[in-house]
Simulated scan of single mutants.
Amino acid sequence: MTRIVEVATARLIRPLHTPFVTALRRTDHVLSVAVRVTDADGTTGYGEAPQIWRVTGESMVGIEECVQGPLATALLGRAVDDEQAPLVHRWLAGAVAANTGARAATEVAVLDLLARRAGRTLAASVGGTADELGCDLTIAAQVDDPSAELLAPGFTTAKVKVGLDPADVQRVIRIQEQSGEGVRIRIDANQAWDVSTTVAAVDAWQAAGVALDLIEQPLPAHDLAGHAELRRRLSVPVMLDESVFSVHDLRRAIEAEAADLVNIKLAKCGGIYAALEIAREARKAELGVMVGSMMESELGLAAAAAVSAAVAPDQTHDLDAAWWSIDPSDLGTPYRDGRFVISPTPGLTRAVERISESLGPWRVATG
């Protein structure tokens, strides 16, 4: 048993080597808040909360104030150990509504601290059974350089963002042709399409021989009936992302028969234990699960990978976000031959080391 004595935040800002563009937004940087918790013995743990206005509604300023205020109050002075780890997300959810990214980062920081104290990886601490995971690579909805439509070496699954280019159908066919045999294509419209547009595009891709793996969130988040109609009309699996923040959202989607798979993100659902609950509920309903992330650094992705290793170690996950801010010549990258490699160091130690130079000054919560 240990006691939490300090909670602190620092801004985490890193440039991307390639602009990241979706139907919802464009960004050239990772814009996050790192959370650090410290116990009475001086052991620390870390988490990351991304600024995602168009998905979670959170900003860096809002995340900082949430962590510095109600979340710090909920944690400071608490005694925690492995048995109480599943309760942390309840303490944080009871302290503030919404603010899922802030809550996730704070919970991850506590779990990281406990993993370090035990000398375990975070993945092992939450039941992970893999030390590396299959990973797709996203191709932006718009590119400034045609070479940005080429898969990096080692990756065999492309996640193509669509919804901005009227020539999306031809663009996806071109990406498939230049990627070569054996490459699978995932489509993510980020809510930009309607039913007829989706059906027409999928029909055209299948006629052209595109190896479609799935289509993710083609319709607005609220349109469960439309997604259910797509499942009836298409042979390609339909994955929900923005429609499912919580286990309650998932249950509504299951009742509507609106999904074949669900994309679980820590910043969207509120943390690791919420993610594990969503995965269990999805499996009960015989839905597939994939773990993704927002635009985050290795710190956030290492936490997402821990969940991936626990809920679907043999799946190809959407863990490429940190790749966008890592120099391609960096030999220390966690990306190896199209896979995300989990560091064997305790907790998230290696991820924290790699992002340390991108951190601003730490601000300690006063409670």
Results as ranks from 00 to 15, higher is better:
residue 244 V to R: 02
residue 28 D to T: 09
residue 88 V to M: 07
residue 264 I to R: 00
residue 117 R to Y: 01
residue 328 P to W: 07
residue 222 H to D: 14
residue 313 P to M: 10
residue 200 A to W: 01
residue 268 K to G: 06
residue 64 E to D: 14
residue 96 V to E: 01
residue 310 A to M: 06
residue 18 T to D: 03
residue 224 L to R: 03
residue 114 L to S: 06
residue 209 G to V: 02
residue 6 E to V: 10
residue 353 E to H: 06
residue 151 L to W: 14
residue 235 S to F: 07
residue 211 A to I: 02
residue 30 V to T: 14
residue 288 G to P: 07
residue 90 R to W: 11
residue 332 G to H: 13
residue 280 R to A: 14
residue 190 N to C: 05
residue 7 V to W: 01
residue 230 L to K: 07
residue 92 L to G: 04
residue 234 L to S: 07
residue 291 V to T: 10
residue 162 V to C: 01
residue 165 D to L: 11
residue 102 A to V: 01
residue 329 S to K: 14
residue 282 A to H: 01
residue 269 C to E: 03
residue 103 R to Q: 13
residue 206 Q to P: 05
residue 104 A to Q: 05
residue 42 G to W: 08
residue 254 I to Q: 13
residue 74 A to W: 10
residue 261 L to P: 06
residue 114 L to Y: 00
residue 223 D to P: 05
residue 286 E to I: 00
residue 272 I to A: 01
residue 255 E to R: 14
residue 92 L to C: 02
residue 36 R to F: 02
residue 108 V to D: 01
residue 153 P to S: 12
residue 155 F to H: 14
residue 42 G to A: 05
residue 23 A to M: 12
residue 242 E to H: 09
residue 154 G to L: 09
residue 297 S to R: 06
residue 40 A to D: 15
residue 39 D to M: 02
residue 77 G to N: 12
residue 106 T to Q: 12
residue 199 V to E: 04
residue 353 E to D: 12
residue 190 N to Y: 15
residue 8 A to I: 07
residue 25 R to S: 11
residue 306 A to Y: 11
residue 161 K to Y: 05
residue 351 A to D: 09
residue 220 P to L: 04
residue 79 A to Q: 15
residue 255 E to K: 12
residue 245 F to T: 03
